[in-house]
Design a protein around this nucleic acid. Structure first.
Length: 461
RNA sequence: GCCGCCAUCGUCUAGGGGACUAGGACGCCGCCCUCUCACGGCGGUAACACGGGUUCGAAUCCCGUUGGCGGUACCA
């Protein structure tokens, strides 16, 4: 089995493209096949090397590795030209100067459902000669058979007047030459498939790759935004890069993307990549388009975060912060032990890597400035309680979580207070805000000295 | 316009003629846990687009309608 992922470098790798890459990767890995990465850069206007780099980067981040390539379509121009010449000479293709307007005129004359047929000329773009009658059937592993009657198909332009080839031609020749056995791509290519099949057959008839297998096709349902429209920036993260910047884990993204259009068949939702590889089957891919819903990704990301070891998570966090917030990264890195402690007590409270710093920064950079929190919890009673808490904490025999809890609990008891009437003032004193990891854990991690200092500062304010 | 694909809870989906008073997950709501925020546990809300067939029987098969999407470029 040989499959390929063939993005065109006209922009960043979008989520839909990432899903296509993932499905190809899963299929190859599940079957012990080969994955070829091909860059379809026949659009010279919009293809850039920056985009190529970005796509490779996104694939690496997703940890989707490939076995061959990247092959650049542009570098295969000679081979394409060779094939084109063969089609021209064998009469499977012809030159025509017909324009889009000519095609429209033809249809007005013969009916809209009638495919355009041009007259061979000496010059002009190259069109493939589509048979007058008959049908091309696409055998799709996901959708079954789809028939396209030739009479409805226009003779497609396969090369520009200058001889440079177009997508539908290059794809067919490249798949043929590479010996691709399974073409797995978005459903937007389904209507292109008969053209590619026709190119394939013509090429074979002209002596090109006569013994190469005709690939099996599989068209994945398209991905849409939450509103059912095309996925775009205004839906939040639309590219892999944005997912990364939002703090998602690549394994969570793989897990979520795999669920968009595919399911194991039982009720499995949370799956490791290893499990995805083991269970993935093309035949189980759905035919309905799916919407990309970030809420579920967030939930899944939280699940995967909780499956990481503390040191692994700390490493990921640092890696994330170095890009997202270098100052935070160096602050966190300065005290590895504090970092490990903060990560351990934050792990079950965060859903993405981006959630960590806002929750735990007070350990590293001091209390936050939240006036509303002070007003609410450090009033007369709050201060009185806080003073008592200070006394208890300073005289506690030890300063581990249990000791801190015992010390603060005694304050609760003495004041006949609700727990929160003691814990919230302490929280605001050490964190500056009303939201933090568990109060006993936080105080213990901060240590006696720093805790007392922060309480004193709060008391003085 | 023409050609094609698709149609189950708000979302992702299970379902391939009787096992369906339609299952799971996210979300949402309620309860429990509880020091905040989360996590976790329990319970609840919510769907077969519509109309015709076929059949003893249809979410499942066929046709039509409607809707969504894609293609229709000397883009990919």
């Amino acid at each position: 089995m040989k499959v390929r992922f063939a993005p065109s470098p006209t922009g960043a790798l979008h989520i839909g493209g990432a899903r296509t890459a993932l499905f190809n990767w899963l299929l190859a890995r599940h079957n012990g096949g080969t994955l070829v990465l091909r860059i379809e850069d026949t659009d010279r206007e919009r293809s850039t090397s920056e985009n190529v780099e970005q796509i490779l980067d996104a694939l690496r981040w997703l940890e989707l590795d490939w076995d061959e390539g990247p092959v650049f379509q542009g570098e295969r121009a000679d081979r394409h030209h060779e094939a084109l010449t063969a089609l021209l000479q064998s009469g499977h293709a012809y030159r025509s100067s017909a324009t889009a307007a000519d095609v429209a005129a033809y249809k007005r004359l013969h009916g809209a459902e009638r495919g355009f047929r041009g007259e061979p000329e000496q010059e002009g773009a190259v069109r493939l000669h589509v048979p007058a009658g008959g049908t091309t059937v696409v055998h799709d592993a996901i959708r079954g058979d789809t028939s396209f009657e030739h009479v409805h198909l226009d003779d497609p332009v396969i090369a520009r007047a200058d001889g440079s080839v177009l997508y539908n031609f290059a794809v067919a020749i490249d798949d043929l030459d590479a010996g691709i056995t399974h073409v797995v791509r978005g459903e937007d290519h389904l209507s292109n498939t008969p053209k590619q099949l026709l190119v394939l057959q013509a090429a074979k008839a002209a002596g090109f790759g006569a013994d190469a297998p005709e690939p099996t096709y599989a068209h994945l349902p398209l991905l849409h935004g939450p509103d059912g429209k095309k996925l775009s920036k205004r839906h939040g993260a639309a590219s892999v890069q944005e997912l990364r910047e939002a703090g998602y884990l690549p394994e969570a993204v793989r897990n979520y993307l795999a669920l968009l259009g595919w399911g194991a068949g039982d009720d499995a939702t949370v799956m490791s990549t290893q499990e995805l590889v083991k269970r993935f089957e093309l035949e189980r891919v759905s035919r309905n388009p799916a919407r990309f819903d970030e809420t579920k990704l967030r939930w899944l990301d939280g699940i995967h975060i909780r499956e990481l070891s503390v040191s692994e998570l700390a490493g990921r966090l640092l890696e994330f912060l170095r890009v997202a917030d270098p100052a935070a990264a160096s602050a966190a890195e300065a005290d590895r032990q504090l970092l490990a402690g903060a990560v351990a007590i934050s792990q079950e409270k965060i859903q993405t890597l981006a959630d960590f710093w806002p929750l735990a920064r007070f350990f590293f950079t001091g209390v936050a400035d939240d006036e509303a929190a002070r007003e609410r919890w450090l009033g007369e009673r709050g201060v009185a309680v806080l003073g008592d808490a200070r006394t208890e904490l300073s005289s506690a025999a030890s300063f581990d979580i249990e000791a801190v809890e015992a010390a603060l609990a005694s304050v609760v008891e003495r004041h006949a207070a609700k727990p929160r009437e003691v814990y919230q003032p302490v929280r605001v004193a050490i964190a500056g805000t009303t939201i933090s990891p568990g109060i006993f854990e936080s105080v213990a991690l901060l240590g006696r000295e720093e805790t007392l200092r922060r309480i004193d500062t709060a008391l003085a304010g």
